[in-house]
């Protein structure tokens, strides 16, 4: 069933009109003197997987990190423009970045489990946000999150073991479980499979496909086949500019821009 879904990755014609979850308008970003993003404008729809592709240094990861304000941790980074989550400006003074990040989760390029047990890794978010009233509830959250990340069956009997003892692919799924444990609305994935072997990659891709029902997912990837496999819509970035955002099947068959065509057919990148 999953395989058939992945094959017909385009939005089904009968799907209801998509609601906009994240919208960006005129986003410009500088690292010190160097401008890294130029007037990026796009909308991300709810319960869809949106892929960002483009050559290295094109700004796709930078833009992704704007969406949960991870760029705030970089001192020299300056951002301009308007990014809205459910119509609310996330760079508004009234927005608490901690709360924003609870709503917009993130999975990183390299698996980065905390040097704690598997259980504590997943329970960390619910604990700091106070999502569980007691141990039983926390246990339940941990279990559902690990099941959600398709990891439960592999780790159920060793939840107290260190998360760093898992294999790379398992670690990445642990990080996904950690992200979904706080019930985010959006999950950002920054090249989540680039450090994984093909089998682990297949596991994670399968998982992304399944998570789509519950979450809005944005994935940055270097791998165009991956974008084609998991996403409904794909955005192509080049030199800090958004070149094109189209349904995935269209961008891979008949892109609007010559540049997109060149990139996809492997003439540069």
């Amino acid at each position: 069933m999953v395989a058939t879904q992945a094959a017909s990755a385009s939005p089904a014609p009968h799907s209801p009109p998509a609601t906009t979850k994240v919208s960006a308008r005129k986003v410009n970003l500088w690292y010190g003197e160097k401008q890294a993003l130029f007037d990026v404008e796009l909308d991300v729809y709810e319960n869809e997987v949106t892929a960002f592709i483009g050559p290295s240094g094109c700004g796709k990861s930078t833009f992704l990190r704007c969406l949960n304000r991870m760029n705030d941790t970089i001192a020299i980074c300056r951002i301009q423009g308007d990014i809205r989550l459910d119509g609310q400006d996330i760079y508004d003074k009234g927005i608490d970045v901690v709360q924003l990040r609870a709503r917009v989760g993130m999975v990183f390029q390299k698996p980065n489990p905390f040097p704690k047990s598997i259980y504590d890794n997943v329970a960390y978010g619910p604990r700091i946000h106070g999502l569980a009233a007691n141990k039983a509830e926390l246990d339940e959250i941990v279990e559902t999150s690990l099941r959600g990340a398709a990891l439960w069956n592999e780790v159920a009997d060793r939840l107290d073991q260190p998360g760093l003892g898992l294999s790379g692919g398992q670690q990445q799924r642990l990080c996904i479980a950690r992200a979904i444990a706080v019930s985010p609305e959006v999950i950002l994935m920054d090249e989540p499979c680039s450090a994984l072997d093909p089998i682990a990659t297949a596991h994670v891709e399968e998982l992304i496909e399944e998570l789509r029902d519950r979450y809005t997912i944005i994935i940055v990837t270097h791998n165009m086949q991956q974008a084609a496999r998991v996403s409904q819509r794909t955005a192509f970035f080049h030199l800090g500019k958004l070149i094109e955002l189209s349904p995935t099947d269209r961008i891979f068959t008949s892109p609007e821009h010559q540049m997109t065509q060149d990139y996809i057919t492997g003439r540069f990148g």
Binding site: M70, V98, R101, A102, M106, F114, Y124
Partner: peptide
């Protein structure tokens, strides 16, 4: 990456430091 990981879960700075 550990700092980023904690921050991305919505941990405050002091939570990231202490925990």
């Amino acid at each position: 990456s550990l700092r980023d990981g904690a921050a991305a879960l919505g941990a405050t700075k002091s939570e990231t430091i202490r925990q």
